[in-house]
């Protein structure tokens, strides 16, 4: 028996340093994506294959632009979280840190690119 309060034991939040934050983010983004992905798959599938004017017209619809923006942002953040878990399972030390930085940079870079393109199309 150690004389530690429950709070003291929780401080530092374990090996990950972030407690259940990462786990919980994956659950939350997963639920959110589950709500919008089916609609996005059909809407995007119908858009793909059209000529540029048709694509610009479809993507500039407010509902489609908002939906696509949400899918790009939360899809890629969810991806980075999952990829990080995979990296933590298989890579160690410097390699692990470098790969986690790489997927984080990739996900934010793609989010910025995707949202920029969407804004240019829809606004």
């Amino acid at each position: 028996m150690r004389y530690l309060t429950a709070r003291k034991r929780a401080e530092g939040k374990g090996a990950a340093g972030t407690g259940t934050e990462h786990f919980w983010y994956m659950k939350m983004s997963g639920v959110g994506l589950a709500l919008i992905i089916p609609i996005f798959l059909v809407a995007f599938g119908r858009t793909l294959g059209g000529d540029r004017a048709e694509v610009l017209d479809a993507m500039s619809h407010p509902a489609m632009a908002i939906l696509t923006g949400l899918v790009i942002f939360f899809g890629l953040r969810h991806y980075a979280g999952g990829a990080q878990t995979m990296i933590e399972d298989y890579a160690h030390g410097m390699t692990r840190r470098a790969l986690i930085i790489a997927v984080t940079v990739l996900s934010y870079g793609m989010i910025a690119t995707g949202l920029f393109a969407l804004a240019k199309i829809a606004l």
């Binding site: 995007f44 540029r52 694509v55 610009l56 993507m59 696509t68 790009i72 899809g75 890629l76 991806y79 990829a83 990739l106 793609m110 690119t113 995707g114 920029f116 393109a117 969407l118 240019k120 199309i121």
Partner: peptide
């Protein structure tokens, strides 16, 4: 693996814009 499709779609959107 879905990152492949994501890369293609973001690139395609950028191209469309």
């Amino acid at each position: 693996a879905l990152i492949v499709a994501a890369l293609l779609i973001v690139w395609w959107l950028l191209a469309a814009s």
